[in-house]
């Protein structure tokens, strides 16, 4: 492990309720200050991987049964989320889970839970700088905000904790393309300015790979492909199955019925 690595997952298996094995030997490395994206179809195990890192498997009766997760050189698998978050790993949950009955600003304040009793005024300003759209909603109940605003709230909430490693689970879920672009630009900006390492789990492979440095492709609880993001974008299989283009790189049309015969080469 070199000192440019912030997180290293080594061959982990995750089992839910002692029966359902979801991850079957996943290994990945996240470099400091980089954006690493994790793409794959539904049920591939992306979210589970994030939860294994952040310790949120525990409340769902899941467990890392094998392998190690090391963060800054220390093993953190199966630790409690309270411990892991205090080391600087914050996960932004899938599907935007705001505190509906708290105001936007209170939502952000919850982000300071890991360093309770320290001043946070400056951080609020920082978050509002990144997400100017939510400033005018400050005093409103978060439950009444729109989807894009909610995404900003939950990301801002995570930023309040000054994470060294930010785990983003599908930030584009159910958002309009324009909002998606805006959010991804902000992610890029956060990464550049705050020097936060980011792991990005996405269905929207195109957007994700555009802003990432490195990418992993997951299927059926395994990593099936990895590489620098710009190489992945060029890969014919990725193009075919995740970017919605024919192998040649042009947008696929439904007339082109033969294309589905192409086999995924890694299977």
């Amino acid at each position: 492990m070199t000192d440019t690595t912030i997180l290293e997952i080594n061959n982990i298996s995750v089992v839910y309720s002692d029966v359902i094995q979801v991850l079957k030997g996943v290994s990945l490395v996240v470099k400091k200050k980089s954006i690493t994206s994790l793409i794959g179809s539904n049920g591939a195990g992306k979210t589970t991987t994030l939860k294994a890192i952040s310790g949120l498997l525990k409340p769902e009766n899941g467990r890392v049964t094998d392998g190690t997760i090391s963060y800054d050189g220390a093993a953190i698998q199966n630790h409690a989320p309270e411990v892991i978050t205090r080391k600087g790993i914050i996960q932004v949950l899938e599907g935007r889970q705001p505190f509906k009955y708290l105001t936007v600003e209170e939502n952000l304040i919850v982000g300071t839970a890991i360093r309770w009793r320290q001043p946070y005024k400056k951080d609020l300003e920082m978050v509002y700088n990144y997400f100017p759209a939510i400033v005018r909603r400050r005093k409103m109940l978060a439950g009444y905000c729109s989807g894009g605003e909610l995404q900003m709230i939950v990301m801002g909430r995570a930023l309040m904790a000054h994470p060294a490693l930010l785990l983003l689970d599908e930030p584009s879920l159910g958002l309009a393309p324009m909002v998606v672009r805006e959010i991804f630009e902000i992610i890029k900006k956060i990464n550049a300015e705050q020097e936060t390492s980011i792991v990005l789990v996405e269905q929207n492979a195109n957007m994700a790979l555009q802003i990432s440095d490195y990418g992993y492709v997951m299927e059926n609880g395994k990593i099936v492909m990895e590489g620098a993001a710009r190489n992945l974008v060029e890969n014919p299989d990725i193009k075919e199955f995740y970017l919605g283009m024919g192998a040649s790189g042009v947008l696929k049309s439904y007339d082109d019925v033969k294309s589905y015969r192409r086999r995924k080469r890694w299977l």
Binding site: S54, L56, P59, P81, E82, I84, T85, R86, I90, Q91, V92, L93, Q97, P98, F99, K100, Y101, L102, E106, N107, I109, V110, G111, T112, A113, I114, W116, R117, V154, R157, A158, A161
Partner: peptide, 22 residues
């Protein structure tokens, strides 16, 4: 803050957990 944390747990326990609320 502690009061807000308490309300956050009542509101969405999982999200509170993900932010490191004890």
């Amino acid at each position: 803050s502690q009061g807000i944390f308490m309300r956050s747990v009542a509101d969405n326990q999982k999200a509170a957990l993900s932010l490191g609320v004890h």
